[in-house]
Amino acid sequence: MLCFSVYAAQLAFNRLYKQLLAPHGLTYLQYLVLVALAQAQDRTVGELGEVLFLESNTLTPLLKRMEAAGLVVRRRDTQDERVVRVALAPAGAKVVGEVECVPLDVLSALDMPMGDLQQMKAAMDRLGAELRKTGG
Rank of each mutant, 00 (worst) to 15 (best):
L2Q: 08
L2S: 05
L2T: 04
L2W: 04
C3P: 05
F4K: 00
F4H: 01
F4L: 01
S5L: 06
S5G: 03
V6I: 10
V6S: 05
V6R: 05
A8F: 04
Q10F: 09
Q10P: 00
L11S: 01
L11F: 01
A12C: 02
A12S: 06
A12L: 04
F13T: 12
N14Q: 13
N14I: 03
L16Y: 10
L16R: 14
L16M: 14
L16D: 13
L21A: 08
A22E: 15
H24D: 15
H24I: 13
H24G: 14
G25Q: 13
G25H: 13
T27F: 14
T27M: 14
T27Q: 15
Y28L: 15
L29S: 14
L29M: 13
L29N: 15
Q30S: 15
A36T: 05
A36E: 12
A36P: 07
L37S: 11
Q41P: 08
D42G: 00
R43D: 04
R43T: 01
T44Y: 03
T44C: 04
V45R: 06
G49M: 02
E50H: 02
E50Y: 01
E50C: 00
E50P: 00
L54R: 11
L54N: 07
E55N: 03
S56Y: 03
N57F: 08
N57G: 00
N57K: 04
T58E: 12
T58K: 06
T60R: 12
T60Q: 12
P61K: 05
L63D: 07
K64V: 15
K64P: 06
K64M: 14
R65K: 15
M66A: 10
E67S: 12
E67D: 11
E67Q: 14
E67H: 07
A68D: 15
A69Y: 07
G70T: 07
L71N: 12
L71R: 13
L71M: 15
L71H: 14
V72S: 13
V73K: 15
V73M: 15
R74E: 10
R75V: 03
D77Y: 01
T78F: 09
Q79R: 03
Q79W: 02
Q79F: 02
R82S: 10
R82Y: 09
V84S: 05
V84G: 03
V84Y: 06
V84C: 05
R85H: 09
R85G: 02
A87N: 08
L88M: 06
A89N: 13
P90K: 12
A91W: 10
A91P: 09
G92H: 12
A93L: 15
K94Y: 09
K94W: 07
V95C: 07
V95L: 13
V95D: 10
V95Q: 12
V96H: 12
V96P: 06
V96G: 09
E98C: 11
E98I: 04
V99M: 15
E100Y: 09
L104G: 10
D105R: 14
D105V: 03
V106S: 10
S108G: 10
S108V: 11
A109H: 13
A109K: 08
L110W: 07
L110N: 08
D111S: 13
P113Y: 03
G115T: 02
G115C: 00
G115Q: 08
D116V: 04
L117M: 10
L117F: 02
A122T: 01
A122V: 00
A123G: 04
M124H: 03
D125W: 05
R126V: 06
G128E: 03
A129G: 05
A129T: 02
A129P: 00
K133L: 08
K133V: 01
T134I: 01
T134L: 11
G135T: 00
